[in-house]
Simulated scan of single mutants.
Amino acid sequence: MSPVLELTHDLIARRSVTPEDAGCLPLIADRLARLGFRIEHLRFGDVDNLWATHGTGGPVLAFLGHTDVVPSGPEEHWATPPFEPTEKGGMLYGRGAADMKGSVAAMVVALERFVAMDPGHAGTVGLLLTSDEEGVALHGVREVVEHFNKTGQRIDHCVVGEPSAKAQLGDLIRVGRRGSLSLTLTVHGIQGHVAYPEKAKNPIHAFAPALAALAAERWDEGNADFPPTSFQVSNINAGTGANNVIPGELIALVNWRFSTASSADGLRARAEAILEARGVDYAAEWHLSGLPFLAAPGGRLRGVVADVCRELCGIDPEQSTGGGTSDGRFIAPMGAEVIELGPVNATIHKVDECVSIADLERLPDLYEAICRRMLT
């Protein structure tokens, strides 16, 4: 069994459902410490984080990943137990195989190879891992970056191991991500009997015209790097369960995925103006989980990662800003160039999550090549 496959097996077998790490980080820290990496265990709240570095000075190239996974869902729905790594038909099955214990293992193996071959390399290479990416992400990389800002730790370039590929390793890299702005909207009404609507105020009826306007709004046109901003309602809840009661309150969960063509403050102001213009009595709780970021065309890391995919995977990668958010949103504001490169994402968060064994065994080669080109 190859080193990357063996380590991925070991990581999958650890039931590290967010925010639990289940011993993944100490395992990795011990391996890297033996090669002279400086190890910092950073625990914030109930979250474990690891920052392992080798070398001195700049540039600082960081690899970023997470050891936590989403819940498996009903285990009886899986063909094989989710926390028992299973090889079948050229695939490795298990929760976290693609998102992202396979990438974490590949990063570790790549760093071991790189440092063993070039212990006096230029600059600094680091590995930043957290057990709080799939959850609320308050005490993971977000808080690590706050710590770095206080201590003066810089990151110049960052490779995130999120599963980026569509059909085969190297066919797509993320060169940026949209921002995410969420709203918990409470619409106030007056509860009453459906037969006496004049004595009540139905929040569903009050919200309906505003919702139609919000859904029809063209928030922006996007730009050369990003698609237009999208607006989605993920949940609406109102009512007592009885068909003869007008509810007194409605709660809606809303999200904008926005590009650099819009700002969070601008979206908020426009949304509130739509609500107020339609006379909605509401309370709004806003949450900005990340701003959009982009690795500029011509950036050194962006060029290196694209070249590595062309040369080692035989494919010219699509350079995309699509998808959801990642912990890269916390690193980019440090002034770092952030690129995401990982395995195929077709089964992430699904029952029977899996990764191609062939892709997994090639992934350390890509990460090691990036190290060599950035730090030699």
Rank of each mutant, 00 (worst) to 15 (best):
V60T: 05
T184W: 09
V308I: 06
R154N: 00
P119I: 01
L138I: 07
D359Q: 06
R142Y: 11
L32Y: 04
Q232P: 04
I274T: 11
F83K: 10
A97Q: 04
L172Y: 02
A62I: 10
P209E: 12
W219C: 07
F207I: 06
D10V: 02
T240P: 12
G120P: 00
I12A: 13
R257A: 00
I348G: 02
G161W: 04
G45C: 13
E146Y: 05
G222T: 14
G335D: 13
V60D: 01
D48F: 02
P197W: 14
A110M: 02
D46I: 08
P228W: 15
L27S: 07
A369W: 03
E368D: 04
R300D: 05
V355K: 08
K150I: 01
G290S: 11
D171Y: 15
C158I: 10
D132S: 04
A29I: 08
H188E: 12
C354H: 09
G298D: 03
S259W: 04
F148S: 05
V69I: 08
E221R: 08
S263G: 12
A195L: 00
N255D: 14
A277D: 13
D30C: 10
P119F: 09
E276P: 04
A369Q: 12
G140W: 06
A98I: 01
E337I: 01
G323A: 09
V145E: 13
L111D: 01
I28D: 10
M117P: 00
A296D: 13
E87A: 04
F114R: 08
G57R: 09
D48P: 09
A284V: 15
G342L: 03
A79D: 13
V254S: 05
V136C: 08
G96F: 01
A283S: 15
A284W: 11
A284H: 13
K199P: 11
K88L: 05
S230N: 10
L32G: 02
